[in-house]
């Protein structure tokens, strides 16, 4: 019951405050769209750089969005209600992560193929980019949420959050961008995609427990 209640609450909150969904997506699209203007519009160069550019932009867009994941609830006192509620924190936190992926991860996933096309990626590479971003963004959100939980009570936690979380993002970036390059070069991709899927499942199952612990530490326990 608390899963569906938290999920619908988060979706409702986002509906009332749409800027928070649009910001990361706007950032993602702008970075990728401005990139060819700054480098060179040559198709073969852009196709080489595309996997890295799209992935770095997606990663930073997610990082930008997770910072506020618990902040508003912390400031209004709702987080204390969550922490003192007579149940484990795992379920509502999982619901929050799922809602956050639907609101910020999914738009990035849907936009990624379009941006890949814009950067002259080949068709098989675009398909793999889509799948890789689909599998990678939940991992990014789950890992970012751990940092967000630890820094929620700090007044300027943004920089600390980046320092905490960016090293954990590196494997996702390496495999995510790597697999698109493999696809562009006609190499097999299923192994790396399976690895990305494994990272997603592990992080989504384990991160809520870490987030719960982080929230308790932030509250002063």
């Amino acid at each position: 019951m608390s899963f569906s209640a938290t999920l619908s609450r988060e979706l409702l909150l986002a509906w009332r405050r749409p800027a928070e969904i649009i910001n990361p997506l706007f950032f993602f699209v702008m970075v990728v769209a401005l990139f060819p203007l700054g480098v060179s519009p040559r198709p073969e160069l852009l196709a080489t750089l595309a996997p890295g550019v799209v992935w770095v932009a997606a990663l930073l867009a997610v990082l930008l969005s997770v910072d506020g994941l618990f902040r508003a609830d912390h400031e209004c006192g709702a987080l204390e209600q969550l922490l003192t509620a007579p149940q484990s924190l795992y379920i509502p936190v999982l619901a929050k992560l799922v809602a956050h992926w639907i609101l910020t991860g999914l738009p990035l996933v849907l936009m990624a193929p379009l941006l890949g096309y814009m950067l002259h990626l080949s068709e098989p590479a675009i398909a793999v980019l889509f799948v890789a971003v689909l599998l990678g963004t939940p991992t990014l959100i789950a890992l970012g949420a751990i940092g967000a939980a630890l820094t929620v009570s700090l007044r300027s936690g943004g920089i600390l959050l980046s320092l905490l979380v960016l090293p954990l993002y590196v494997p996702v970036l390496v495999f995510g961008a790597g697999v698109v390059t493999y696809a562009a070069n006609g190499l097999p991709v299923s192994g790396v995609l399976a690895l990305l899927a494994a990272m997603m499942l592990a992080s989504f199952v384990l991160a809520p427990a870490a987030v719960a612990a982080g929230l308790r530490i932030s509250s002063g326990n």
Partner: peptide, 14 residues
């Protein structure tokens, strides 16, 4: 137990 903090804990958007 129910604990109510000195901040009401309500989201203003809802």
């Amino acid at each position: 137990m129910l604990s109510l903090g000195h901040r009401p804990g309500l989201r203003v958007e809802l």
